[in-house]
Nucleic acid binder design. Structure first.
Ligand SMILES: [Mn+2]
Ligand SMILES: [Mn+2]
Ligand SMILES: [Zn+2]
Ligand SMILES: [Zn+2]
Lengths: 150, 150
DNA sequence: CCGAAATAGCAACATAGTTGCAAAAATCTC
DNA sequence: GAGATTTTTGCAACTATGTTGCTATTTCGG
């Protein structure tokens, strides 16, 4: 279990307060988990890392609250396990704006937001209108590729 | 329940035999459901339409068999409900090749394969490699847009 | 039509997600 | 900082989704 320093404790508290959310142990811990690592987390991942401390239902509700407030966003998947990642843009209460793609590594099984890669414009046939575009790329991530070469 | 004509009965039987699959009632019925309508189907959709006749487990296993043989492919989603659609390209035993995007209508809630829209090339940062690209567009479909104008 | 092989159905189980309600805690007010 | 108020949590109970082992049934080649 990674030691929660005073500095990071402060950071999550500030993040929560900025969204006018009550600062509770479970919210701090779950937000901390997202800050501690670069990938996305599924409900199951979080339950494994903090499930002994908090109830499953609390985790579901906390994730939903974070999504509603624009702290995290969902990432669709082909394996029936929606993942969540921190919003880095100017998402807020009730609105998300994401223009980046998502990358799923077949080796380490992690999902990453590639903020540098902007989603291209997709030209649809006549009659269709676009609200939102989600792009999922599957392949081998930077870290795993580097590890292979060694 | 749509009447299964001799002609369509023949068609599904042929499709199954082409994949060297035994021709069974459940396989015929489920394949029929895909042919009867333009959208994608989730396990739940199929269970509603044929669940009284066939066991849930049979539906799961049939869908898996169809995916393995390249008869249908999966479509990821943001709502934890993977959908399935017929493969129109030259997919076969153990290999799928799809270059089309998927469209989710926010109004009729249907998911469609837009075979005409080719997935663009996505340029990833150094170190990442691409196996597969999945593009999900959310918006209003042709039929729903047309219905609105009336 | 017969026998071998494949498939279907059933039961039991595992995992995922939801809801109502009372207890606990966080926040507000003074 | 105590007490009132609001919010959040934990628990129980429930629904939905997906998996596995085993046996009965069906399919299919000969
Ligand atoms: Mn993202
Ligand atoms: Mn498709
Ligand atoms: Zn990786
Ligand atoms: Zn529609």
């Amino acid at each position: 279990m990674p030691r929660v320093t005073v500095a990071t404790e402060r950071k999550v508290t500030d993040l929560l307060k900025r969204q006018t959310l009550s600062v509770t142990e479970s919210r701090k811990r779950i937000l901390q988990l997202f800050l501690d690592q670069p990938g996305a987390l599924s409900h199951g991942d979080i339950e494994k890392k903090a499930g002994e401390v908090f109830d499953r239902v609390t985790i579901y509700r906390t994730l939903q609250t974070f999504v509603d407030r624009g702290l995290i966003h969902t990432i669709p998947s082909a394996d029936n396990a929606v993942r969540y990642a921190l919003c880095k843009d100017e998402c807020g209460d009730g609105h998300h704006r994401h223009e980046h793609i998502h990358f799923v590594c077949t080796q380490c099984e992690q999902t990453f937001c590639l903020d540098e890669v902007v989603t291209p414009v997709i030209r649809l046939p006549k009659g269709y209108s676009t609200d939102q575009i989600e792009i999922l790329v599957q392949g081998k991530c930077k870290q795993c590729t580097a590890a292979m070469r060694r």
